[in-house]
């Protein structure tokens, strides 16, 4: 605490002293889901990627355990075809091995970096495929029944929380976000599908994500 703050500290107040630094520390103390070390003391994903970048295959096996479910599931959600989803997941996981040295912790969480690679790969696949006619159906089709696929409890919780927060959006916001993210549409295509203007669709995506971010308690 520098001398600049002394003047404030001399004024009694019931509220905790809030500064930018304190807020930043609070953010850092709660890393985004999927990156925090497990209870058994295993290293976090960011650290594992650092080891993978130096050619550590054991570290990569641990990265595989953490990422294969989200990468495969996301690909499946976008392309809706198990064989293609598996192919994409394989490409993406090998890509993570190959490009682990490109991960920059100051640019976001490791899980976000990895799943961005996965999402872009899946989206490229559906955009290049002549599957346009099916995409809207895919995006709006009900999600798989998670009670039937004995998934880990963590995934079920995550799924429920995201579903609850999606319900808190306006219908237009929810449609715009799910068509884009799970359907792989560009915002121009979403605007066309929903019969709304480009500015409106951009605004709905941004406002919807902001609302979702706040509902999920995501910290940048």
């Amino acid at each position: 605490m520098g001398p600049d703050f002394v003047a404030f500290e001399t004024h009694p107040s019931g509220r905790p002293h809030r500064t930018v630094g304190v807020e930043t520390n609070q953010r850092r103390s709660s890393p985004p889901h999927g990156t925090r070390p497990a209870d058994d003391g295993s290293p976090d994903l960011s650290e594992l990627l650092g080891r993978v970048a130096r050619g550590d295959r054991d570290a990569f096996a641990q990265v595989y355990e953490r990422l294969s479910g989200p990468v495969y599931g996301l690909a499946l959600r976008v392309v809706r075809d198990p064989a293609q989803a598996e192919e994409i997941a394989q490409d993406v996981l090998v890509e993570i091995w190959r490009k682990a040295s490109h991960y920059r912790p100051d640019r976001g969480s490791a899980i976000s970096w990895a799943l961005t690679v996965a999402h872009r790969r899946a989206v490229d696949r559906v955009r290049s495929a002549q599957a346009d006619r099916d995409r809207e159906q895919r995006a709006t089709a009900p999600a798989p029944d998670y009670d039937q696929v004995a998934e880990e409890a963590g995934t079920r919780l995550e799924h429920q929380q995201v579903r609850r927060c999606l319900r808190g959006l306006t219908e237009r916001q929810r449609e715009s976000i799910t068509l884009a993210y799970y359907g792989g549409y560009t915002y121009r295509e979403v605007a066309e599908l929903l019969g709304i203007g480009l500015t409106a669709v951009k605004t709905r995506m941004r406002d919807g994500l902001i609302r979702l971010r706040d509902c999920l308690g995501v910290q940048p």
Binding site: H33, G69, P70, V149, E151, T155, E158, V162, I177, Y182
Partner: peptide, 10 residues
């Protein structure tokens, strides 16, 4: 990314 994690499948 949370939307992605919610879609995780084995």
């Amino acid at each position: 990314t949370r939307l992605a994690l919610a879609a995780a499948r084995r």
